[in-house]
Computed example of a mutant assay.
Amino acid sequence: MTVKGDELPPLSLRVTRADLVRYAGASGDFNPIHWSDRFASGVGLPGVIAHGMLTMALAGRLVTQWVGDPSAVRSYGVRFTRPIVVPDDDEGALLELTGKVSDVTDGVARIAITAKFDGRTVLGKAVAEVALPA
């Protein structure tokens, strides 16, 4: 039985430049801030950054793995607060995800998600509502 205060199993994911290339191809977002160090630094960024929607999708994985059924997600929203800088190496950037049940009402759990890169939050007000199994 899921109750307020339950913690989801943490999830750590690596985001690499290869992931950015694959996401760009799937999404059609070929903005050079996601692949060119020269361009990214030229517009004031600390380096190539991950797509915001990729970051959001990876954070959503925390919830779908926990609930076991992606169709159980009723709603999901975030605010983008800080980019994930992805180095040009084989290791990539580490995205650390945690979640906590903040409410359970009428069979729907509200999950507060924390997404961190380099010890700092990258998504604000990240919340998913999930229909719990009967």
Rank of each mutant, 00 (worst) to 15 (best):
H34A: 13
T105F: 15
S12H: 07
T114A: 10
Y76D: 04
L13P: 01
E91A: 13
W66F: 12
A57E: 01
V122R: 02
A131D: 14
F30N: 08
N31G: 00
E96A: 14
I33Q: 04
L54S: 14
D37R: 02
T105E: 13
D37C: 00
D88V: 06
A115K: 10
K4F: 04
S102N: 03
A18Q: 08
V78K: 08
A72F: 03
K116N: 04
T2V: 14
L11C: 01
V104R: 05
E129R: 15
L132F: 08
P133Q: 06
A26E: 06
I84Q: 06
G92D: 05
P87V: 15
F80T: 06
D103I: 06
F30E: 02
V3F: 00
Q65V: 12
R79D: 15
S102M: 02
L54D: 12
G68W: 15
I49G: 10
D89R: 02
L95D: 04
G47Y: 14
L94N: 03
T105N: 12
V86T: 05
D69L: 06
K125C: 09
E129Q: 13
L62N: 13
P133S: 02
R38K: 08
R61Q: 06
D89Y: 04
V127G: 02
G28T: 03
A40K: 09
G28Y: 00
E129Y: 09
A50D: 00
G92M: 03
V85T: 15
K4S: 08
P87W: 14
S12V: 15
L13K: 05
L95E: 02
I49R: 12
A50I: 00
A115R: 08
L54I: 07
R38H: 13
G52V: 12
K116W: 03
S12M: 13
I113K: 05
R82K: 14
M56A: 15
G42S: 05
T55C: 03
D37V: 00
T16K: 03
I49Y: 10
R79A: 15
G42Q: 11
L20P: 01
R22D: 11
F117Y: 04
V73H: 10
V67R: 05
M56L: 14
D37K: 00
E129P: 01
L54V: 11
K4T: 14
V73D: 04
G42W: 02
M1A: 15
V130Y: 01
F117S: 05
F117W: 07
R120H: 15
V48C: 08
D6T: 00
I113G: 06
G68E: 08
T81D: 03
A131T: 11
G28V: 07
R79L: 11
R38F: 09
D88I: 02
G47S: 07
I113D: 05
V101D: 00
L58V: 10
V130E: 04
R82F: 12
S12R: 14
F39V: 12
A57V: 06
D118V: 07
R120I: 07
P70F: 10
W66P: 13
L132E: 12
L13E: 09
F80S: 04
A59R: 03
R74T: 15
A126M: 01
A50T: 02
T98K: 06
V104G: 13
S41A: 10
L20E: 00
T2C: 12
A59G: 13
W66G: 09
I84R: 05
T2P: 05
G52N: 10
G107E: 05
V48D: 08
T105L: 13
G42P: 04
